[in-house]
Design a protein around this nucleic acid. Structure first.
Lengths: 261, 261
DNA sequence: GCTTATGGTTCATTATTTGAACCTCAGCTT
DNA sequence: AAGCTGAGGTTCAAATAATGAACCATAAGC
């Protein structure tokens, strides 16, 4: 892997930790030599992507991404457009609603709205959603070109719960269902006791760019309810697509994403 | 310079452009070989930091920074804390108020609130504020250790307007004034016709981490008014410091930033 | 159909990255 | 207090990855 790739992976690893981390730990987590890890950290720090705490000497994500993100969002306001839809959906469904975006080959959670009740599913911003085991992943894959589905199903598929479907044939069945009805259902595929429904946000060319998902405790969710959630997710996702790409078209800056083949 | 540094500089350059840019242009802007620039772009794209438009083949900032920024903001909610203060100040002053943060050796604008009137100063999110020529830069420097002031004044100081002070001796005078009264004034130092006042947001150890600045058209701003703005900027900046670091202290995660020496 | 752009690729040369071993310091144990 | 342990940080010869001149492919303009 290139040096840049390794450094960005380090940054990614750092971003997934709950708290600041020391040199030795981050080196181990990234399978890097201590000296190498340090050089990466120093370099990333120079550019503001990493910060080192003056007291503890531990490292954390810096503020450079905040600047970049604000520029990105000013030009391609995905969150600004999407969040109101997510909020509305969280209120009407009274369950946790989260929004994911495809980026860097993965589907990552970029926004979460919690409903105002104590018993709810929690999802963390930044968490990565496996394609085969989450409603979002399935909804995303179902609307991808066959080639990408094949690629995703050829990788080893982790079994997160007793209910995780890991047989590629069965997953293809789920994807067909999803494509047919417009939303996916994950029945405890990622975490026991959780059921979710998700629908893809799509670019004008049909490509999915992210997903809207509703996650609810299995115990209080009927089959009817989850299908209702799915239908609502479709409405929200389509609303986001239309508002985001609709206004973009007017300004003539269609943000089509080119994928690596 | 290290490969990582070069790649991050490319990312930075890309972020400062108003629109998507082609391979040849970005290579030229970064003084890189086309082949090298392309390898960087591909690598950055793999990790979501860069996106390539499918139609135009041009490149732009990707969505990975959005994810990182949300994680950073969830843990160190500088913007979440600061923005309400900036908003209030923009309303009460009826002028443009912007917030900057020190990161990667530079002071960058991270938030702007415009007042509801047509004739106002515009400031772009992401713009870099030179230390010697802006109110924010002076306010930041004035509260830095002498060593860092020396370092900043040893670099070549660009003359942006006829009024830009570039004599290190005179700048030291401005810094002393700033330190004494708690806020800085830039009289057309960066852009003709603009006067601004700024105050630093400071960490518990006294180190500045960013600035609150008010920018107004010179034509309608009296000496009394700019001093009033300065006083208000101090109130806002101190309010941000207290709220940000006050709550941090409770959770025991003081985010002291270690600077490169 | 030629010219001149563009984006993209190749591969021998070159410079950078790498990591085992090292240093220094702080806290802990005996 | 001496000795140990593990932390962060540094060095420099060896190994590897980055580099860029020259290249190809394609599209637009004349």
């Amino acid at each position: 892997m290139s040096t840049i790739g390794k450094a960005l992976s380090l940054l990614d690893t750092l971003s997934r930790l709950d708290k600041d981390v020391g040199l030795t730990d981050i080196a181990r987590l990234c399978s890097l030599d201590k000296a190498t890890a340090r050089r990466f950290l120093v370099e990333l720090e120079k550019h503001g992507f990493v910060e080192q705490d003056a007291d503890s000497r531990r490292y954390r994500i810096g503020s450079a991404p905040v600047r970049l993100a604000r520029i990105r969002e000013a030009r391609y306001p995905f969150l600004r457009v999407a969040v109101p839809f997510i909020k509305t959906l969280a209120e009407s469904s009274a369950e946790t609603v989260h929004l994911s975006e495809f980026s860097g080959g993965r589907l990552s959670t970029i926004h979460v709205e919690d409903p105002p009740r104590a018993h709810r599913i929690t999802v963390d911003v930044g968490s990565v959603l496996p394609f085969h085991a989450t409603a979002s992943g399935l909804a995303f894959l179902a609307f991808c070109p066959p080639k990408e589905i094949d690629a995703a199903l050829q990788k080893p598929l982790e079994k997160f719960t007793d209910n995780t479907v890991v047989d590629p044939k069965l997953i293809r069945g789920l994807l067909d269902e999803t494509a047919a009805r417009g939303f996916s259902i994950s029945h405890q595929g990622f975490e026991a006791g959780v059921i979710s429904a998700a629908a893809p946000v799509r670019a004008p060319d049909g490509r999915p760019v992210g997903c809207v998902a509703i996650a609810a405790p299995l115990s209080r969710t009927t089959k009817t309810a989850i299908h209702e959630f799915g239908a609502q997710a479709i409405v929200a996702a389509d609303g986001i697509s239309e508002k985001y790409y609709g206004s973009e078209r007017l300004t003539g800056t269609s943000p089509n994403i080119r994928r690596r083949d």
